[in-house]
């Protein structure tokens, strides 16, 4: 006995003198340290760096010097910014409801399909796996005039006049948006399906016994119970459309954001300011504005949808 007690006391180090609770805390922080350091270095530090850069006039060729809110003033006075701002919100306002509407309808009916269910689901998910660049190239080909473009070919066969699509200032934005909506559908359908599956079957059976019609079941039971899923998808897809870039950049590669900036979103403007004009300070200010927009919209959506 005495020897064992001696041996246990012998190391006498800091670790052996700690209580069980303290040891658990040490372990917990030990494991947490890995993601914490990762986040600090990879996420938070660049974010703060961007905030700092937005009040400087750094342009790569000359060192950064503090200019106060000069970049923000310039941004507010820039007509291109307001054009881009409008475009970005058009992507959001059109993209989110259209994509959620389509994906809900598909998920709602696909949920009842037993025949080749997994296969059909996989088909819908496929565009989500494809690179935006390849997708944009294919869609650009769709939009070409006859005899190359599939869509114009189709329209022509019904005697409908040719549409300019990507070359029109009014049609270009919806034309760019379409592949973006299409590409996101698979993901949203999968999430909606999971949400639908999580609703217990007995809720529907009880409703059938109480005599609710299909429409009433959808309105009174399915949609309210799907709310958490809906909140997630609204926020997620809004952020996606506010940050739209690769679809736009690739579909019109000789004039990204054109024609006449009619499809240019904020992220593309940031990209061009930073990597074509090398005005890093100005680009950082635009980034901060985008960050604020995303933050405000997400918070507002969460608040509205939670309280209802």
């Amino acid at each position: 006995m005495a020897t064992i007690a001696q041996r246990e006391a012998a190391p006498g180090g800091l670790w052996s003198r700690m209580s069980l609770g303290q040891k658990q805390v040490m372990w917990a922080w030990g494991f947490l340290a890995v993601p914490l350091i990762f986040y600090a270095v990879i996420r938070f530090w660049p974010t703060f760096q961007a905030f700092y850069l937005s009040v400087t006039d750094w342009t790569i060729t000359r060192p950064a010097s503090f200019v106060g809110l000069e970049n923000y003033k310039r941004l507010l006075a820039d007509p291109l910014f307001w054009q881009v701002f409008r475009n970005t919100f058009m992507y959001l306002i059109l993209g989110t409801p259209i994509s959620l509407g389509i994906s809900f309808v598909v998920a709602y009916y696909l949920d009842r399909v037993r025949f080749m269910h997994a296969f059909i689901r996989a088909l819908y998910f496929l565009p989500f796996l494809t690179t935006a660049a390849a997708m944009a190239w294919v869609w650009r080909w769709f939009y070409q005039p006859v005899p190359i473009g599939v869509i114009n070919d189709f329209l022509a066969s019904f005697g409908i006049p040719q549409q300019p699509f990507l070359r029109s200032t009014t049609q270009a934005l919806p034309a760019v948006l379409a592949p973006a909506v299409w590409a996101g559908l698979g993901f949203q359908i999968i999430i909606f399906l999971a949400g639908l599956r999580a609703i217990p079957v007995t809720y529907y059976e009880a409703a059938r016994i109480d005599g609710l019609s299909e429409g009433a079941i959808l309105r009174k039971i399915t949609l309210p119970l799907l709310k958490p899923t809906l909140v997630f998808l609204v926020v997620f897809s809004s952020i996606g459309f506010l940050r739209i870039f690769d679809q736009v950049y690739n579909i019109n590669s000789n004039d990204p954001g054109g024609p006449l900036n009619s499809t240019k979103p904020l992220v593309l403007m940031i990209y061009q300011t930073a990597f074509s004009s090398y005005e890093m300070g100005y680009a950082a200010a635009q980034t901060v504005v985008l960050f604020m927009i995303l933050l405000v919209i997400s918070l507002v959506q969460l608040r509205i949808m939670r309280d209802r």
Binding site: T202, Y203, A206, L225
Partner: peptide, 20 residues
């Protein structure tokens, strides 16, 4: 006949009462 036309009421094991 549809369940609603049979004039019966059912109580389920997991209650099936709506959380919202």
């Amino acid at each position: 006949l549809q369940p609603k036309d049979r004039n019966i009421a059912m109580v389920f094991q997991n209650y099936a009462i709506y959380p919202h």
